[in-house]
Amino acid sequence: MGEEEVAMDKQETVKTMPAEEVTAMEARQKSLADLCSMRCALALQSLRKWPWDVYAIRLGAVIAALVVWQLLSANGVKFIIDFRNVPAPLDVGAQLSGLLSSSDYYKHITVSIQRILIAFSLATIFGVIVGVLMGRSRLVRNIIMPYIEIVRPIPAVAWIPMAILMFPTEESSIIFITYLGAFFPIVLNTIHGVDQTDESLVRAARSLGASNRAILWHVILPGALPSILAGLAIGMGVAWFSLLAGEIISGQYGIGYFTWRSYALVEYRNIIIGMLTIGLLGTLSTWLVMRLSRPALRWQEVSH
């Protein structure tokens, strides 16, 4: 509504309404106008608060790197790095747009995501169970801790030969390697969370008649939840790490296999695409874990 119209409205009301109603209406209009301008000001403020300069610099930095990379690759520079073997960003982009319309690319991605889901779910179930047992029982902790300390530092790649020998199918050995990667951060974070149980809350629960099982469900697990969820986020990252190692052995599908095969097939542009896809999937899935776990931690917020 334009200002003129408002003014006209006002004049009309002056003619037909008693004086006190008019002032009340004016006051209402005024407060409405105030509210509107306040909203605008707030919107502006949040726009202004958005750190434009920061993002401009970051975007600029990425673009600059792409331009330099393009120049180096296009001219086949060889200085320490052999840029003749590194496909230029524009070539990679063209290749990607082709891949995006082929079902093959998506097949690799879905297979990888499937493996991640299976391995990560297993790691979550066993990680939390083992972590809670180790957190609550000295005996269990002392029995299992040495295994964790021995096995945990072994990198996923080192597991490949043994995993192939141990499991009947390639698929199961890949899932096993992925599972191992996710398992350790989840166990260790669960133990840490359970260790932090507030004993005064356990006492409170006991005095209210809670059984040991109720204390586990209502006190220990919710108390450990922030730490467990942090473990899940870390575990998800490591799972992708390990999956990639595992997929090198698979002769079928998977984004890691796609990347590795591209090397063998001298499809260098696909290597870059594979690498970027892995990075993106890893980041997205970790973000998803954190995003999904947020509602479970709402009680930590001091003000709504």
Partner: peptide, 12 residues
């Protein structure tokens, strides 16, 4: 019934 010095409510 117990009431504790540090309220000891279940924060979740």
């Amino acid at each position: 019934g117990m009431v504790f010095q540090q309220h000891s409510l279940f924060p979740w």
